[in-house]
Design a protein around this nucleic acid. Sequence first.
RNA 1: GCCAACGUAGCACAGCUGGUAGUGCGUCGGAUUUGUAAUCCGACGGUCGGGGGUUCGAGUCCCUCCGUUGGCUCCA
Length: 669
Amino acid sequence: MSLISVTLPDGNVNEYAAGITCSEVIIDVLGKKNGCVAAMVDGHERDMSYQLLDSCMIEGIKAESDAGMYILRHSTAHLLAQAVVELYPNAKPTIGPPVDRGFYYDFAMEPLLESDLKAIHKKMQEIARRNLTLERVELDEAELREHFASNPYKLEIIEDKVGAGSGSTIYRQGDWYDLCLGPHVPSTGKLMFCKLTSVSSAYWRGDQSREQLVRIYGIVEPTKDALKQTLHKMEEAKKRDHRKLGKDLQLFHIDEEVGQGLILWTPRGAIIRQELQNFIGEHLTRQGYSQVFTPHIGKLDLYRTSGHFPYYQDSQYPPLVEKDLMRKLSEEGCSCSELSNLMKTGDIDGYMLKPMNCPHHVKIYASQARSYRNLPIRLAEFGTVYRWEQSGEISGMTRVRGFTQDDAHLFVTEEQIGQEVLGCIELVQIIFEKLGMVDYRVRVGLRDPDSTKYVGDPDRWHKAEQACREAAASLGVEWSEEEGEAAFYGPKIDFVVKDVIGREWQLGTVQVDYNLPERFDLTYKGSDGELHRPVMIHRAPFGSMERFCGVLIEHFAGRFPTWLTPTQCHILTISQKHTDYANHVAAKLKENGIRVEIDDGDDTIGKKIRTHRKLHPAYMIILGDGEAESNTVSLRGRNGDQIADIPLDEFVRDICSEITKKSAKPSLV
RNA sequence: GCCAACGUAGCACAGCUGGUAGUGCGUCGGAUUUGUAAUCCGACGGUCGGGGGUUCGAGUCCCUCCGUUGGCUCCA
């Protein structure tokens, strides 16, 4: 038998007889498997049982590594499928991939209930305990078809993915097997520590016109402890959910009688929003923006020119029609579809709730003759827009039907694009940094080189794309280029953050636009005395106040920094004879612009603390005889720490300074 | 929009196979006047998401609409 040279991660080279398995090499080197579930051989993931026939480089893949977790999840998806088929013999497994935080498997079967998961989980554990070996088997096309003869979904995959004439592999565990390329863990015993998290539905191949499948989601970890930890984290994440905290902290309300996806900002939430808007406003002024105000509606004609109507009719609220016209049309027996057609053709006019602020801002630009000396012109507005999101998509504050963008439109010359894009993203960065949001990524959306859907000259596109790239690269955070993700009217930079349950949300965006200036025939006079076309940049560093606040609530878990928190000080009296002093302290704080709430009720101090801590004020101020006599306050912080008898003036000075500095955390206790 | 589950007082929940609604917190009233995570007593509060049906009788079963949640699809 021939010998092969196997290069190890540390650079050492061992010689083995050809045909040795990954597992044997790893055990030979380490004396044990050391938690490896698979191996990386010359850059390819392989099973532990994979035989090495040629000289190669090898490295073990540990279960807890990213690649290892992926394999663990994938194998657990198989385990799930086997369990489901054993319990429901008519269920047909379709696909079951690993995903970021776990895995899922889709089955063609009768709908399941959440409560059925328990039995399935039990079955999975039973199979895991059988410790079945996962065996890779290569089959030719005919054999594959024979193995999956009763499963049309697998046959379809064989048809499409495997291709005519070629074979593929299956993985067998006990008497069950699945079509799969692997790799997998060596045996089902590695998959003990899993949990099924939810059951929902999905379409076969994500196609709405095809069969509805039952999707089961689950998670898995290499050890019991890790599973416990992950479950604990999931519980913690649930507590931070902005929908729950928003209710508990009285930040916003959604009322079904008002409408789905329409946020009512209650007084406490409104403070947070106002503070954020003030904060952005300061930076807008510094960066040379002009603030404008525009109404919530505009004529259909405006949106015909901009292109929003009727091309995006599906995602807009239906147009508003003047009442006399409506009456006349209705007397004439005009049907809804006729009305809709008349609107499309422009034969009748109406108004639209604005889906975007840009047309209004364009009109402000166009209201005067502009010169190159005026550019860039930067128009900013907290503009509320309305979009008809699909009902199933609406969620809390993060996906809504009416929202306020921290919007601005910059009208610039071609040469100014780079510098202005940079200015926009610097603003985003300043704001994210101040709020401690460091876990975000940047996506640069570029043209799909094969598509012709884009408007504007390719050379200009190229320059704008380059400007976006350079701007993104200058940020010093993770960024990626994504071809085909540009808007049809220009390249863009998106800021994406994760919420506590791992969902990613696009917040800020900066988009270059060649289209609207063209459609509205915008011009400026250049130094050459000729008229030129400006370029527009759309930007919204927070995306929308609704979504941003939703994400912020989760980011801070409801414990906002002093400058943002709705009530900064809760004054609690020891007994009712301290009410006068409490009012004195409150007045002093309010004079200094500090938001205060007093509780001078007849509850015990313990009870008051318990009540008020639920609202997470920056500080609780406890006032009794001692404080009243010496004109001091005693503080209690969020973590329960206490400081007694701080002179009132000193406290006012310190908290004011903390607020002015927009400190990340209350730090006076 | 599609699939599934869910929808009981302001909030969190209980209510078995149909017999006509309970608990805790909150609120209000009374007592208490308290020094750092629940003082005691009492009261108010629900046409059980809306509408329709089955039944002698429905929070409990069926239909339908609305909403919420988890996914899918979509997102200028």
